[in-house]
Amino acid sequence: MSADALIDIRGVTKTYGAGETAVHALRGVSLRVEAGEYVAVMGSSGSGKSTLMNILGCLDVPTRGEYFLDGSNVAGLSEDQQALVRGRKIGFIFQSFNLIPRTTALANVELPLTYAHLRRAERRTRANRALELVGLSDRADHRPNQLSGGQQQRVAIARALATGPRILLADEPTGNLDVHSTDEVLGMFDELNAEGRTVVVITHENDVAARARRLIQVADGRIVLDEVTR
């Protein structure tokens, strides 16, 4: 293990609410993920997987504990710097796709590039390339409601890829997809990981987890199993 892992969380807890009704979603999680790993996170419903993922993606902050991303303490970053990290280092893929409605696939993919201050022409090229990568060049002008679930998720993946982030975080990316679409998406993850990107994927499905090389089991806010599977 190198001194600076890409993801390094130490003793992270997350508590929602306070007093009698407090929910301890994470009860002390420490985890290191090196660059280029492919990690699957499993666990029963309500065990805290999404909570963990949101913290990893700088969408949420831990109640206690520290998070070092690429060597720097996330808690020490300003709001704008965190936005920058979300935009450039991390690509998110959600179970519910989270495409912006009434906006074309191409515009959706362009969005993170816009926030990264890329010029118009450069954005166009990169977004088109990302759409090509997920095999949806012919659907660039379609709006989310004109796309199938699998196609929407592929647009979401293209969007997550567009900025060339080092980390891909996916929270049940295949939860809403059929077997065929699941295979397509997983194939893409394999390729991305082969390119050297770090992939962390939350799943309930064993065959999804089987594609990863490391499996983490979460139960009741704690990591109960952490093993290299391949």
């Binding site: 998110f92 495409l99 912006i100 969005l111 993170p112 926030y115």
Partner: peptide, 8 residues
Amino acid sequence: IRKALGAR
């Protein structure tokens, strides 16, 4: 979504 994609 916009914030998750890096909007300030």
